[in-house]
Design a protein around this nucleic acid. Structure first.
Lengths: 121, 121
DNA sequence: TTGACAGGTAGGAAATTCCCTACATATTGT
DNA sequence: ACAATATGTAGGGAATTTCCTACCTGTCAA
């Protein structure tokens, strides 16, 4: 019956669905608050396109902007990500169970190679 | 420089971007493995549309199917969600910092109303 | 004031997503 | 074998997303 209510976290999940936007978040996290240009330097795309992405992030509450002269300094606002973590929580035991199964399986095997081969990408 | 490489987690984030799909995950988590019909009962949408959603979830590794006669039992596969949690990790300190700020602020106020009034937005 | 810089907005094309109605396939009961 | 059940796939339309090239606005420096 649930008509798939549009939760407020909807915007956050949608914002995270794009890798450019996730990269922006990473840049803000690792390099701190910075103007649009500095961010744009990391992408191939036209600057106005990045502006659109910033808008999506803004509307999801994931970044804030502070005007400073003719620049706008964008800053990471991580709080909405706490919602995502909360959302994940009830699933945690499921993957932990899986890990346990896997661990048990490995225990039963001869002590061979622990490393499961480098990811083929 | 980074051309926003399409990470493998891309599929997972994209899968989570839709609330119907998140609802499916919740149903599988709360009610356990079940056939498509049982899931479909919870949605207004045509069953083939749900099938498409299940396909997206399958390709993200978030569910698995087990054929049982003419039914297909879908089961939650939560492991890819661990990737999401890993992705979240480096952000955690940012929102904790925010909480601390908030806490400090509240401490400085007269012990009045703890509830900060519903956001006027 | 004028020009250059920073960055948002408008308008639109191409791709993708989401949902639908047929239809195809496999299994099961009669 | 036949009808009914369970579910996937095809084809297509509408909406949304993503990206582009102009273009507009505000700030700073000469």
């Amino acid at each position: 019956m649930a008509t798939t209510s549009a939760a407020p976290e909807d915007r956050v999940f949608a914002a995270l669905a794009n890798s450019t936007r996730r990269e922006v978040l990473r840049l803000l996290r690792e390099d701190g608050p910075q103007p649009v240009q500095a961010l744009a330097d990391h992408f191939d795309m036209a600057r106005p396109s990045l502006s659109e992405h910033l808008k999506v992030l803004r509307e999801a509450g994931l970044v804030s902007e502070e005007r400073q002269g003719r620049q706008r300094i964008y800053r990471l606002e991580a709080l909405p990500l706490a919602e995502v973590q909360d959302w994940l929580h009830p699933y945690e035991r499921f993957w932990r169970d899986r890990f346990k199964e896997l661990g048990a399986l490995l225990d039963r095997l001869p002590d061979d190679e622990a490393d499961p081969a480098p990811r083929t990408r």
